[in-house]
Amino acid sequence: MAFVAPKETYPGKVFQVGIGTDKQAVFGGENVLTFHSFEGNVPNRALVAYEIQDIPPDDWSETVRKVYEGVSGDPVTWAKYCQDTLKARAIALRLLGTHPDRENRSAEDAIKTVKDVLSAIQVPLIVLGSNHVEKDSSVLVAVSEAAKDKNCIIGKAQEANYKTIAAAAMANNHKLIAMSELDINLSKQLNILVTQMGFDKERLITDPMCSALGYGLEYTYSVMERIRLAALTQNDTTMQPPMLGDVGMYVWKVKETQASEADLPHWGTLEERGIAWETVTAGALIMAGAELLIMRHPKAVEAVEKFVDELM
């Protein structure tokens, strides 16, 4: 029996999203499952953004903190280091210092940080809140205005605060991350709610919530696969925005990236273990369909970029 390659074509495709102004970055746009270029178009690489934050990363794991020693005290220096030395294609600035349990910085502080970082870099900027539902809705509205027309990604809008954040992102010409918790139906519902406000679905990014290798990765993996299948096979436009894997912050707090080799000799060297944890988590999410990743360790980013080179 002769072999006939069982190739598949799909009625749907993933929206292509471009961010930034001077040096644009583009992701999404494929009409097949992740990197299935043998049966359709995969016009873009997955985009990896380097994560930085508005306060020094004192609670980051030593493995990744030491990489940014000397630059991470100030977000502008840090952002420039990622862009110029690490050749970041995008920067993700997390405004962690605005969280009431951290430094409770004001929206005005956040505006200044965002403006300073924007004027220092040419690559696109993703601006993330501190994941405090109430505080984010005031901070992200303020920074959306401050970054008007810079074509940033603003995030994350959640069910409890999407209205104000989506309205601000819309009014100021930004893209928007909509995050819900590990459930395809919640993702779909939030995307519908946001678009019902008049927000263009082609300017959305879906975050079905990340989880680290060994800590629920299989849930994120399968929710992503199901979202992508719905987008392609059912041509479900509410599921066609690109997907985000917010990898760094989930990976670098788990035991495998923290525990010393002295305590757990059978786990091997801590430095490589931590980098591998971020690398493999990000790689698995790419296989599940993520087009945008936020990561921390340059060696993990480098490995993922090489892997994407091989896939293209």
């Binding site: 060994g214 495998e256 059978h266 273990r273």
Partner: peptide
Amino acid sequence: KWKNLALFTLRQN
């Protein structure tokens, strides 16, 4: 060992 741990865990997931 670090690579084994990551791959074993992925396979389990």
